[in-house]
Design a protein around this nucleic acid. Structure first.
Length: 207
DNA sequence: ATCCCGAGGG
DNA sequence: CCCTCTGGAT
């Protein structure tokens, strides 16, 4: 198994820019941006968020948004109809259950329509500084290649990672793993030749 | 062709 | 467990 502390330190050096690109001031906008980022890139999300937040700056506005108008703004993202519906439902849930505020609580977030575990953990970490591990496809794949877990179930993988890494590092480590997974440690043909972890990774040149 | 910081529904 | 929703980049 690759030493988690070594991995974290090397990735921090290799990818100093790894962070939440959806770096918005308030939790509501961060939540919206995180929901939008499903199956897209953060760069693309950032091309639509100015208009989204310009027109619908808070939960109250979004809860009564014209669906067709919202769909039109979201079109370049893919899944735009589903996302538009999901977002309005989410805003209505925030207004109904939380006075329009984003609850800083995992269970409360997951209970909201359109919010699952991954979205909830990202929002908790990025908006509230509450440590969480987001096991998306990248984090799961890299954790397995690094020998940190053998689990394909995200919840079990999360538990394995949590046992190896101090909570204070969870959020940034996930950002770094995601960043590294997108640029170097690809699902199909990982670029082990340019990977800063190759000498400590049990799967290097073996996938 | 294949992949993307997913969730809901059957 | 499977499927669907969707467009754009590579």
């Amino acid at each position: 198994m690759a030493d988690p502390a070594v991995v974290n330190a090397r990735l921090a050096l290799a990818h100093p820019d790894a962070r939440c690109a959806l770096d918005h001031a308030d939790a509501f906008q961060l939540l919206v941006a995180t929901v939008l980022s499903a199956q897209t890139t953060d760069e693309r999300v950032n091309t639509v968020t100015p208009e989204v937040f310009g027109r619908w700056p808070d939960a109250a506005a979004l809860a009564t948004a014209d669906l067709a108008a919202l769909e039109d703004v979201l079109r370049p993202l893919g899944f735009f109809r589903a996302k538009a519906r999901s977002l309005v439902g989410l805003a209505q849930g925030l207004v109904r259950d939380h006075d329009g505020e984003v609850p800083p609580d995992l269970d409360a977030l997951v209970a909201l329509p359109g919010v699952g575990r991954k979205t909830a953990n990202l929002v908790l970490g990025n908006a509230f500084g509450i440590p969480g591990i987001t096991v998306d496809t990248h984090v799961g794949r890299l954790a397995r290649r690094l020998g940190w877990t053998t689990q394909t179930d995200p919840v079990r993988a999360e538990a394995d990672i949590a046992a190896l890494v101090p909570p204070s590092e969870w959020v940034m480590l996930c950002h770094r793993l995601i960043f590294h997974g997108r640029r170097v440690c690809h699902a199909r043909r990982p670029a082990c030749g340019e990977c800063v972890l190759a000498d400590v990774c049990p799967s290097a040149f073996a996938v």
